[in-house]
Design a protein around this nucleic acid. Structure first.
Lengths: 129, 129
DNA sequence: GATATCGCTATACTATAGTATAGTCCTATA
DNA sequence: TATAGGACTATACTATAGTATAGCGATATC
């Protein structure tokens, strides 16, 4: 019982950091934007063209979010006219393993669902016979 | 150029499975429910009591989602009255590494943000001087 | 007979995420 | 002078996630 409580509280303490990570990555556009910035800095309209379907409003907001979370840096070139570029930060590289982990599980999960579906069809076939 | 296109398409192919994983874990209640079921099967009202603040409607919906994704199994005991229990599946155990990865990054990220904040204060101090 | 528990569902609402469309202020170019 | 691009912001909308509250049909308990 004490053991269980201890384990449970351990589990609970996992929830907060997991939520933090999910919040940073969540939404429809964060990851596509990160991908677009993977091979060097880009300008607002360049990102907008690469991330198909995003509106200016969303891009502006998501870039601000990513900047606040220290994943993206906004550079202003003091030229005429000013040139604004966005690039990934060092910190953003630490996301690599998280993304890999999510990708691997996503693939595994799809396979599992497909297997389950085949199982179901097999069962149905037997039942029909 | 060809190289870059190739790398980009690789990145894009990562997006879908990552999205799949995020969709499965997303929302306010999925993870707390999974935690509640970590130490054995539980009944509807037991989960409801452990996951503080969740409404019956949400619990019902989220359990159905988790069941559809093969993470939770619903058992009906044919007794009078019927007893319904929920438990984690084998497949749900494969989430372990994903959750660990998210947790680790969440902790790292908080630290990074805290450091950045200290940096900022240092800079501000210098500027005020 | 009245009340309580179990495992939900129904209805109606609010809050947050995302979309659609237009406009602004700057400079550059035809 | 007109048009276009860059980097946004403003306004208004829709869609999805989540909340609040109530009810229901079964059994069990007082």
């Amino acid at each position: 019982m004490i053991e269980t409580d201890h384990q449970l509280s351990t589990c609970m303490s996992i929830l907060k950091p997991v939520r933090d990570s999910l919040d940073v990555l969540n939404g429809k556009w964060k990851l596509p934007i990160i991908v677009a910035l993977t091979f060097g800095e880009k300008r607002f309209t360049e990102i907008s063209k690469e991330v198909h379907g995003i509106t200016d409003r969303m891009l502006s907001k998501e870039l601000r979010d990513l900047e606040l979370n220290g994943l993206v840096r906004r550079n202003i070139e003091e030229s005429y006219p000013v040139k604004v570029t966005y690039q990934l930060t060092e910190h953003s590289k630490s996301l690599r393993s998280v993304i890999d982990s999510l990708k691997d599980w996503g693939i595994l999960h799809k396979q599992r669902l497909a297997e389950e579906c085949r199982e179901y069809k097999k069962v149905k076939k037997v039942l029909i016979k």
